[in-house]
Design a protein around this nucleic acid. Structure first.
Lengths: 231, 231
DNA sequence: CACTCTTATTAAGTATTACATATTCGCCTA
DNA sequence: TAGGCGAATATGTAATACTTAATAAGAGTG
């Protein structure tokens, strides 16, 4: 019977281990009791006894939360809730993973979207130091003789933009995503950056010096157009 | 001695458990052997023996990777590497966490950046169905009598934009972040959406119907200006 | 010969126990 | 009172035994 087959196919999805359940229990516990960073969490043995499972299982669940930076534990003091880095989870999953082409492309699109939309943060938070830093990079780029040096400038320029945006979470997001885009470098090097009509880094800096926030998005769009056209 | 103090202060940071080390070993193992999704991973006992640690420790490490969706394990078949959802880690850390105001603000900024930069994806991937859906939402919004109904339309409208962008990773990102922004609803309800000069949802739809991609970013900027001004 | 039913094997999931290690606290002594 | 020593405690690690489920192999039957 196909119905029976379907049921069997559903079963493994619904399957949860004790560790999964304990993990969820702990998450609920933290939310419902509205435990704040710094507050203590029950001892392993207490949790095990309360939930009627082995300490081993409890430790697996705790180990997960610890990896995400949600809790910290010291030898006698017990465990405390911590304010986790929201991007930690993303880092853990992206860093060691061989992403397939499809996902990598989506992440690259995400980067393009971010850089076009970055303008308002930049204009509200730009400082003279940042602008000078961009100037220096542009100058370095113009003097560059090798392709490798030019690509390094390219990366530096855009990284500096994220820095300028003054949003730590956003910057962290970018830093995590960056290694994924290394594959782009290959075809990046084949692009003609001096092509007529394309907006250069120097042009972008000029706009940033002005207070013309309206000009930024479309300038960046034109700058990234070679990439955008690949969508 | 202050040097000694410094050393003591450094010690707990450098401290790593066996489980941490095993976790890293496994990550390296996966990368170096360039194991692909679907490929099998050594048995728990084999790993334990190879690294000279207890199976218990190995299970803690594996439990973490399993949570992130990097591996799956079945009773006899052993464990296999899986293609993880890149946003899984983010979901795990954001959902149950009481984020502090500072981080929440940064995530909200991130959302604004995304929506302004979204244009090119939208224009390249819009379909008639999507546009009609937006039309329907705008119409619903105009007929809405209660504030709650209007907010629901607001959420629907912007969610639909992410859907239109045709980027699953981006959409997932948005879905995860959405609950964080509920706090915005409060002061959102105080804003005057009919204020003169502000770009309405209807205006945005009109632009999307056209093929004027240049007009989008600044239109969206104006639409979001009440939020942007809060930066 | 094919086909099903049973059984054995394997690897993950769970439980229990014991011990190591480090940190806190309090007592005790100089 | 200060300082050190030891007890208590909670996490980290190890070892072992058992449970459960899925696969493979083998036996028996049409």
């Amino acid at each position: 019977m196909s119905l029976e087959k379907d049921l069997f196919k559903l079963k493994p999805i619904a399957y949860t281990t004790m560790a999964d359940q304990v993990e969820n229990h702990l998450r609920e516990y933290i939310i419902k009791r509205s435990i704040k960073p710094g507050d203590p969490i029950p001892k392993e043995t207490e949790i095990a006894q309360a939930l009627g499972v082995s300490r081993n299982v409890v430790r697996e669940a705790l180990s997960r939360l610890r990896m995400l930076g949600m809790i910290e534990s010291r030898k006698k003091r017990g465990m405390i809730l911590t304010q986790p880095d929201v991007m930690k989870g993303l880092e853990l999953i992206i860093h060691p993973t061989i992403l397939d082409e499809h996902v990598r492309k989506q992440l690259f699109e995400l980067r393009l979207v971010l850089e076009v939309g970055l303008g308002d943060l930049l204009f509200r938070r730009k400082s003279d130091e940042h602008l000078k830093k961009l100037d220096a990079i542009v100058e370095r780029e113009n003097k560059a003789t090798t392709q490798i040096e030019r690509i390094r400038c390219e990366v530096d320029f855009h990284s500096t933009l994220y820095e300028m945006a003054g949003n730590e979470t956003l910057k962290r997001f970018q830093d995590i995503l960056m290694p994924v885009f290394e594959y782009v470098v290959e075809y990046e090097s084949k692009l003609d950056h001096t092509s007529v009509g394309s907006v250069t880094h120097a042009d972008l800096v000029k706009i940033l010096y002005s207070n013309n926030a309206e000009a930024y998005p479309n300038a960046m769009r034109k700058h990234l157009m070679p990439h955008l056209d690949h969508l």
